[in-house]
Design a protein around this nucleic acid. Structure first.
Lengths: 167, 167
DNA sequence: CGGCATCCTTAGGGATACTG
DNA sequence: CAGTATCCCTAAGGATGCCG
């Protein structure tokens, strides 16, 4: 196998799927998602939320972003519904505020994992890896169809109009 | 199930995994990957490569980015090894230049698919969907461990030091 | 057709200092 | 501790025009 996947990397477009069918511009899901995840700093804040950060300074210290930037990202991510404010009181301590992933935010994990997997593969190993907790086996991101097939190549994928009412 | 996944969304850090173990800053794979995929425009160019764009103006028209931006992204993506320049000659036509995904670029598909899946789920449907070509069943991005378990929640995931020499 | 040069505007982000 | 306010710099990106 050569270094190039060239034309066989393209996905198959059903019929003559055209722009207004929803695969482009404002309607494109990739573009819409990137509008929420806007910046690298947003991704890093999300990453640290997965890694256990809760308080403002934890995010600042661990993302290595400046305070104003972290404040802005936290505000936006809360507004967008990916994080929510929490407040908890440890016994004998004063109340603390914090941030936690919502279900919407937590559901970003496969995307983060996919980016990590790509980076490990093509930019070199980082020294850590994701694993199934308890089982201990290394984790991979896979594309599978509902018929149960594992889909290894983007050339085996098609883009089609979604049936009405499907999720 | 409430709207919040809160603390159970956090992944488990093995032992006292610390910054210099490679899960942060310059060594963090997420950060390194985002340094390559830097901007939204880069992602859109990649997206169009998957959707079949090859020539300069196809990228310009279909991403709805300006020419200088597309030119810059194409140059960078070629330099980074995600795209490569091609040249082909249709019968009776003069030679044309183009761009195609390399294996490295094509391997980004799971990450794009994960972003699409998240957007469809949380930002609303776009009208199109990915499917297994030929089989026709809808496609999903899944986290699976090498022992074969499907991992549904980020709370079931751990981050551990990678064994020496493992990929 | 496939760009590059120039100019301009906006957004992202750091540093520092300050406040409830 | 959890931010804001201010200032400043750089990067991202659009518009326009030119060029091999």
């Amino acid at each position: 196998m050569s270094d190039t996947a060239a034309s066989d990397a393209k996905i198959h477009l059903e019929g003559r799927l055209e722009p207004r069918d929803g695969w482009r511009a404002e309607t494109c899901t990739i573009a819409r998602t990137l509008d929420v995840l806007r910046t690298k700093s947003a991704m890093l804040v999300i990453r640290e939320a997965f890694y256990g950060a809760e308080r403002f300074d934890e995010f600042v210290a661990r993302t290595e972003l400046s305070e104003p930037v972290v404040a802005a990202r936290l505000r936006e991510l809360v507004a967008d519904g990916l994080l929510e404010r929490t407040s908890y009181r440890e016994p004998g301590q004063r109340a603390r505020q914090g941030y936690a992933l919502t279900a919407m935010g937590a559901d970003l994990f496969p995307a983060l994992a996919a980016l990590m997997q790509w980076g490990e593969r093509w930019l070199g190993p980082s020294g850590v890896r994701l694993e199934h907790h308890g089982c201990g086996a290394p984790l991979t991101v896979e594309l599978r169809c509902e018929a149960g097939h594992t889909v290894a190549s983007s050339g085996d994928i098609g883009l089609a109009r979604a049936p009405r009412g499907s999720r």
